[in-house]
């Protein structure tokens, strides 16, 4: 598990560098990615693959919003590297492979799974971010 957490950290921090995250924030971006990937691995056992990705994406988005406020950075700086390990690249690849091998039945199943996984990432981000948006709007109104 520790090795997996490290791999998640590495994936997030390197992709953060590809997208040119400010150097000072790189470490935190990696941390968010590591957390997301670890949560995904744990909850996947409990709630299945899609549930795991959804839980992880929600956690990543919550952490990114909190870090962004604390460190006065745009949310994207933490959110983009954080969700990178959750992108269903493997499933997308297998989908393409099945289409190539004329195995359309399998390909369609994989395609639907890929779309659902991507949807789970999006749903996680949307739910967490809208809660934060509501919260900051409420604070704004009270002032």
């Amino acid at each position: 598990m520790l090795v997996q957490a490290l791999i998640g950290f590495m994936g997030a921090i390197t992709f953060a560098h590809i997208y040119r995250v400010p150097t000072k924030q790189l470490f935190y971006a990696g941390l968010v990615g590591s957390l997301g990937w670890t949560i995904c691995l744990i909850t996947r056992e409990l709630w299945g693959e899609i549930g795991g990705v959804f839980a992880a994406a929600t956690a990543v988005a919550i952490c990114s919003e909190m870090l962004a406020r604390r460190r006065r950075q745009p949310v994207l700086v933490f959110l983009i590297p954080g969700v990178i390990p959750l992108v269903p690249g493997g499933k997308a690849y297998l989908t393409m492979l099945s289409f190539l091998q004329d195995d359309y039945g399998e390909a369609l199943v994989l395609l639907v799974t890929t779309v659902l996984l991507a949807g789970a990432v999006a749903a996680g981000i949307i739910i967490a971010s809208s809660i934060f948006r509501l919260y900051s709007r409420a604070k704004h109104v009270r002032r």
């Binding site: 997208y19 994207l76 959110l79 969700v83 990178i84 981000i125 949307i126 971010s129």
Partner: peptide, 9 residues
């Protein structure tokens, strides 16, 4: 990754 995440937001 950037296009994907900003699209959602």
């Amino acid at each position: 990754g950037v296009a994907m995440t900003t699209a959602i937001r």
